[in-house]
Computed example of a mutant assay.
Amino acid sequence: MTQQDRQRIAAGLVGGLSYAEIGRRLGRPTSTISREVGRNGGPAGYRPQQAHRATVRRAHRGTPAPSSAAGVPGSAAEEEIIEMAVRSGLPRTTARVHVDLLLSEDGRRTAAELTRRLKVSPASVSVAVNFLVQNGYVRRERDPQRRRDSYVIDDDAWYNSVVISSRQTLDAAQAAMAAAGTIGLDSPVGQRLARCAQFLERVILDTMESAGRWRALLS
């Protein structure tokens, strides 16, 4: 948990938010927020900077995190990648699921494995993987023998995620152009919407063309 997360927890407590609501906004389980607050002064005494320093001290007293089986550096490197994903807009739990799949040996996990490894609820994993599947970051594979789904991240995921995101933005551009026509292209608002739509359309079409052109690099 970052110092910024702890500041948001403190702000949520001051604002009278429940642990569940604070957890939802941070992409964390309610139990994580409850433990964080409980061991750092409680709802009335929680101070984000003090909590962060205390956590750092506890970490220094612990043992170093082991490297992963794939030879990828341990938790410090993983946390850095997760923070980058969160800054790009992914909810934290979704980012953790994505990175865990990304750093796995064969790029696949079951929902049960993700739940166990990340120590989050099955419901949180379900929400995260559904988002990742819908946006092309991972794909779902059915294992007919074990009657369970596996979630897979492979090289094509990068191309698929770019295409899906581009199509969504292109839909927004077309909606803006339609609105401009309805309002009237001779009005300031209509002209503004039309310029926005044209800009987005040209950029997205270039992006999709570039993704197709360089897709061979992934194979």
Rank of each mutant, 00 (worst) to 15 (best):
Ser161Asn: 06
Asn160His: 05
Phe199Arg: 13
Leu170Cys: 08
Val162Cys: 06
Ser166His: 08
Asp171Thr: 15
Asp171Ala: 15
Gly184Gln: 09
Ala176Lys: 14
Leu205Trp: 07
Gly190Ala: 00
Gln191Pro: 04
Arg202Trp: 02
Asn160Leu: 08
Leu200Asn: 02
Gly190Phe: 06
Tyr159Ser: 10
Ser166Trp: 11
Ala194Met: 07
Ser187Leu: 04
Val203Ser: 07
Ala172Asn: 09
Ala173Ser: 13
Gly184Cys: 14
Cys196Tyr: 02
Leu200Val: 09
Val189Ala: 11
Ala197Gln: 09
Glu201Gly: 10
Asp186Pro: 01
Phe199Trp: 11
Tyr159His: 15
Leu193Glu: 02
Gly184Met: 07
Ala194Lys: 01
Ala178Gly: 09
Leu193Phe: 04
Asn160Thr: 11
Leu205Ala: 06
Ala172Lys: 05
Ala179Met: 13
Arg192His: 05
Val189Met: 11
Ser166Val: 03
Ile164Cys: 06
Ala176Asp: 08
Phe199Val: 12
Leu205Tyr: 08
Leu193Gln: 02
Arg202Lys: 15
Ala173Val: 05
Val163Cys: 05
Asp186Trp: 05
Ile183Asn: 05
Val189Trp: 01
Gln174Trp: 09
Leu205Gly: 04
Glu201Gln: 15
Leu193Met: 09
Phe199Leu: 12
Cys196Thr: 03
Ser165Lys: 07
Ile183Thr: 14
Val203Lys: 03
Asp186Arg: 13
Gly181Met: 07
Tyr159Ala: 14
Leu200Ile: 06
Arg202Met: 10
Asp171Gly: 10
Arg195Lys: 09
Asn160Val: 07
Ala175Leu: 12
Ala179Ser: 12
Ser187Met: 02
Ala180Asn: 07
Ile204Glu: 05
Val203Gln: 06
Ala175Met: 04
Glu201His: 13
Asp206Cys: 05
Gln198Tyr: 00
Arg195Tyr: 04
Thr182Cys: 03
Arg202Glu: 15
Ala180Gly: 12
Asp186Val: 00
Arg202Ser: 15
Ala176Glu: 09
Met177Gly: 08
Asp171Gln: 14
Gln174Asp: 13
Val189Leu: 13
Ala173Lys: 03
Ala197Asn: 06
Leu193Trp: 01
Arg195Gly: 03
